[in-house]
Simulated assay, not measured.
Amino acid sequence: MIPFLDLKKINEPYETAFQEKLKTVLNNGWYILGKEVETFEESFAQYCKSKYCIGVGNGFDALVLIFKGYIQLGKLKKGDEVIVPANTYIASILAILQADLVPVLVEPRLETYNINPDLIEEKITPKTKAILAVHLYGQLAEMEKINEIAINNNLIVVEDCAQSHGAINDLQSTIYNLKSACAYSFYPGKNLGCLGDGGAITTNDSELAKVLFSLRNYGSEKKYHNEYIGVNSRLDELQAGFLNLKLPNLDTDNEKRQKIAKRYLSEIKNDKIELPFWDFSNNHVFHLFVIRTKNREKLQEYLMQYNIQTLIHYPIPPHKQKAFPDWNHLSFPITEKIHNEVLSLPMSPVLTESEVDFIIEILNQY
């Protein structure tokens, strides 16, 4: 069996180091917001070329806290509208709602699966105050265009980077100068994953960072002194320790993913399969390699006959979910096409050459 993602194999090289890290944390006797979290926050901020990193409980909390931080600073208020891609994973939309804001759905580009900047401005109203750009499947959204729209309309830009650890482009300075905030997830299956839940926020905005450090810890900067109505969402000390061990290898792992993606793109030749777009820059780290096909279930069953496991990211678009009955009548044809046709192939830094050979061969025979 070629598994879609072999987490055991990914984490095996770290087993001895993980055990040593566990002993270190145990011996320190400090299990919440200790040296491991502090070290990771410094290292990840440096890796992201950002001034601040705030470790939180998970990627969802990272998004929610960013919005609540902006509300606390008076830059957003409850009921404000946030532009968000219609085909994103549900967590992006739930985070907006959790902060008592209003999501406004915008169609993606079919080629990249990311939000189509050309369609954003027509959805902007006097209530629109922010854009949530999601770097879906590991590919950066068109941030130059999005940031230009944000500047022209005085909007905040928030980035959902849950799937794009390490993706870069030449426009990063533009992004960071806007003082935007980026939300990361370290869920085990991410390009940088821990052994449980974990998340972080990066930003260059000192005001926002100060509020976020408090909000994640009951709204308290000093123990028993609560400036804000906060939550309990802190990156776990042990998980931070594991991330400290894995972060130095993130770029190498991403390069392995890109190498596999190049092979898929150049060697899969089948008219029934639509391959994803990539310009071969470092703007895509292939958290997922997502193809499209008209009869997804048939292809998935065919691959399973050859013991090749695939997954669907994601089968139901947000506006068709039972959780959002007020949206069920809406029509987003590009989003619906994507959700009806996408299929994710095995993609990880531990896939072997022979496994990739076999996957390509079987797909070409389909």
Score class of each variant (00 low, 15 high):
Q365F: 01
G34K: 01
K337R: 12
H135F: 08
T335M: 03
N177R: 15
D100P: 00
G79K: 01
Y89Q: 04
Q309K: 15
Y264S: 09
N11H: 06
G196E: 12
Y89E: 14
C48G: 05
V82D: 01
Q139D: 09
L97K: 14
N11M: 03
I149R: 01
Y14K: 06
D170Q: 15
I338P: 00
I156F: 02
I156D: 04
Y302C: 05
G199L: 09
E301P: 07
Y31F: 13
E336T: 15
H135T: 08
E121W: 01
Y176W: 15
T16C: 12
I360Q: 12
A209G: 03
S266L: 11
G79A: 05
L105C: 02
N28V: 11
K298I: 15
N154D: 15
G230A: 02
T335W: 06
V64Q: 11
I201D: 07
T203R: 02
K78R: 03
P317M: 06
L33T: 08
T202M: 04
S348N: 01
S164C: 14
A141H: 01
S92P: 08
L215F: 01
A86N: 04
A183V: 10
K246L: 10
H135E: 06
E38I: 00
V25C: 01
E159P: 00
G196L: 07
A133L: 00
S185N: 00
G59F: 14
A141W: 03
E42I: 09
Y14G: 04
A323M: 14
P103I: 04
E159K: 01
I316F: 03
D80T: 02
A150H: 00
K320L: 08
Q321F: 08
L311E: 12
V231K: 12
R109G: 14
A167R: 07
V211N: 02
L363C: 09
E15I: 13
V106C: 04
F44T: 07
R296D: 15
E207M: 03
K262H: 09
